[in-house]
Design a protein around this nucleic acid. Structure first.
Lengths: 181, 181
DNA sequence: TTTAATTGTTTGATATATAAAACAAAAGTA
DNA sequence: TACTTTTGTTTTATATATCAAACAATTAAA
């Protein structure tokens, strides 16, 4: 089972790199109204040559549309993909920063690394959880308040830990749990 | 900012692939007591040639130690890396399955895809959250009970959504939120 | 011990993603 | 229009990760 799951990493529809070409076009079109090859190069910090090759492949694959003046925009497929990735990024960023209380910069970084890898199933469940967690339900309000006053401390010596199973990767790293306020 | 974060994906200490060679050795040594090149090939489903090349690189980099009979084991560095990755995998698997109520098979799959990418910072905060969430604190107990009876429904038409910001990737996918019991 | 099977390495090939540099085409300027 | 700059493409090269097949070495079996 697990032996085979890790390869799925590479079976993702598009590579991490290609997804970011699409994201770049989305951002450029949204912010400056258009996206030429050179704009993508500058935005992603890649050479014109590299961008030319990859963008043309993505045009061939139907994710990007090129007009007669060589301006690019996303196809419907491309838009769908970008919307999915952006939704997941936003979701994870908020999960980490607003609920887990991770430093926002780290939350953003981690969300960006995993955004295109996480399934829709997990994402939807997280959305559902957040829906309740952030709601006005008294149980949610009470929990949030209690958690904000809580400080986990995994000394994790001999006694059993509620959360970990094996040797604790975090033992002796109490500072990692502290909430900077 | 974000433009540059995505490249960090490739700045991870070892590639996803290499990490899994180390994980394979860990598993093989743990379960059958030793790990030869052929065992790694069989376990990962790769050819002997590919394994030979990559394992020798990882030996050169100091993650793996080879004895005179060509049996492999992890160096201390290798063990540390594997422990970190396993801890994160376990953590995410539990976060998704036990807290977000994601189907366990999907939780495992997603955890396996992101295990080596997530920072220690985020992981520690998740551990902290889980420590409280799964505790005997009455607020936690009350929340868990209430959430297990909750069913999110993102109709997300015109009105504002508590959770999403832009166009909802999940709108019209109510079935994704349903908890199979 | 000689042969056969298994295991490990090397080589040649493919695919992706990149850079650098040469080249071509388009756009802007004098 | 002619020249210059900018933009895009192509080519050559590098790095990773893989396979298949040839080859070598080790191990097991007859």
């Amino acid at each position: 089972m697990i032996q085979n799951v890790w390869k799925k990493f590479d079976e993702i529809e598009l590579s991490h790199s290609s997804v970011h070409y699409l994201m770049a076009i989305h951002t450029l079109v949204t912010t400056q109204g258009y996206a030429r090859s050179i704009d993508i190069s500058n935005y992603l910090g890649l050479t014109r040559g590299s961008v030319s090759i990859t963008v043309n492949k993505l045009v061939a694959k139907g994710y990007i549309i090129e007009d007669k003046n060589r301006f690019f925009k996303l196809s419907d497929t491309g838009k769908q993909l970008v919307n999915a990735v952006l939704s997941k990024r936003r979701l994870f960023e908020r999960l980490l920063s607003e609920i887990m209380l991770v430093n926002p910069a780290i939350a953003e970084e981690d969300a960006c690394k995993i955004e295109h890898l996480v399934t829709k199933e997990s994402s939807a469940k997280i959305l559902s959880f957040m829906g309740f967690y952030l709601s006005d339900d008294p149980k949610a309000i009470a929990f949030r308040k209690a958690f904000s006053e809580y400080n986990y401390n995994c000394t994790h010596q001999d006694e059993h830990c509620d959360v970990c199973e094996l040797e604790c990767y975090f033992a002796g790293n109490e500072n990692y749990f502290r909430q900077e306020k």
